[in-house]
Simulated scan of single mutants.
Amino acid sequence: MERMHGGQLDEEERRGTAESVNKIAAQLGRTTLAAGQLLCRVLQEGGELSIAEAAARGTTSKAQVRELVRQLDGLWLAHLQPLEYDDPGYRPERIVVRDAIQDHNDLLHGYDFFGALRHHIVTREDPSFHDVIVDMDFSLLD
């Protein structure tokens, strides 16, 4: 957690953060390879990606992408936002990373892990989302 949060955490916060990250790691360990890769693509796009774009990038069908999202949703990692018709335009059906607070997420408990991870990945050159999410190399965050 030292690399991800620098010296910003006191000992109690560090322990709480490490406990949260261990729970998240356990959930990520339950995903299939394809679901983990999809989650990486969504994170690379800032936490939101349309079903059509995910299917095109993963060279798979929209139905298969929806099935992967169902898996991620069951693990409290990401969910499907329905098609929205609003003015001035519409937003297509899309995959959204779970929000730590708005979703009343039992896994994240108010800890914006994905936001912190995105910030960490963009400010460093060595780790990638794939390294952490798919390869489960959380030592890159220490």
Results as ranks from 00 to 15, higher is better:
residue 124 R to T: 12
residue 51 I to N: 03
residue 3 R to P: 03
residue 117 L to T: 05
residue 134 V to Y: 03
residue 106 D to F: 07
residue 103 D to P: 01
residue 112 D to L: 05
residue 57 R to P: 02
residue 35 A to L: 08
residue 139 S to A: 15
residue 114 F to E: 02
residue 52 A to G: 08
residue 135 D to A: 15
residue 115 G to A: 10
residue 109 H to G: 05
residue 86 D to E: 14
residue 17 T to Y: 15
residue 124 R to F: 13
residue 106 D to S: 06
residue 118 R to F: 05
residue 123 T to A: 10
residue 28 L to N: 08
residue 86 D to W: 09
residue 36 G to E: 08
residue 37 Q to Y: 10
residue 73 D to F: 03
residue 62 K to M: 12
residue 2 E to D: 15
residue 128 S to P: 04
residue 131 D to L: 04
residue 65 V to L: 09
residue 136 M to H: 14
residue 81 Q to M: 11
residue 104 H to W: 11
residue 53 E to V: 12
residue 40 C to V: 12
residue 122 V to E: 09
residue 27 Q to C: 07
residue 93 E to P: 03
residue 83 L to S: 09
residue 17 T to D: 05
residue 67 E to Y: 07
residue 25 A to V: 09
residue 105 N to D: 06
residue 84 E to H: 05
residue 1 M to L: 11
residue 118 R to A: 11
residue 89 G to I: 01
residue 133 I to K: 03
residue 113 F to I: 01
residue 86 D to N: 14
residue 2 E to I: 14
residue 133 I to E: 02
residue 11 E to T: 14
residue 69 V to L: 03
residue 77 L to S: 04
residue 137 D to I: 11
residue 121 I to K: 05
residue 128 S to L: 08
residue 88 P to K: 04
residue 130 H to F: 13
residue 64 Q to F: 01
residue 84 E to K: 09
residue 2 E to P: 01
residue 123 T to W: 11
residue 91 R to C: 05
residue 100 A to S: 10
residue 132 V to Y: 00
residue 11 E to F: 01
residue 34 A to Q: 14
residue 103 D to L: 09
residue 66 R to P: 02
residue 50 S to Q: 10
residue 41 R to F: 00
residue 121 I to E: 02
residue 30 R to C: 11
residue 112 D to C: 06
residue 51 I to Y: 01
residue 84 E to W: 03
residue 115 G to I: 04
residue 4 M to C: 12
residue 93 E to T: 03
residue 118 R to H: 09
residue 99 D to V: 00
residue 59 T to H: 10
residue 10 D to Y: 09
residue 19 E to Y: 13
residue 99 D to A: 08
residue 102 Q to A: 12
residue 106 D to W: 06
residue 121 I to V: 15
residue 9 L to G: 08
residue 34 A to I: 08
residue 19 E to R: 14
residue 69 V to Y: 00
residue 129 F to M: 06
residue 96 V to M: 07
residue 127 P to W: 07
residue 17 T to K: 10
residue 27 Q to W: 02
residue 21 V to T: 10
residue 41 R to E: 13
residue 5 H to F: 15
residue 126 D to R: 07
residue 114 F to R: 01
residue 48 E to Y: 13
residue 52 A to D: 12
residue 13 E to I: 13
residue 106 D to C: 01
residue 65 V to D: 02
residue 47 G to Q: 10
residue 10 D to L: 07
residue 56 A to R: 15
residue 82 P to C: 01
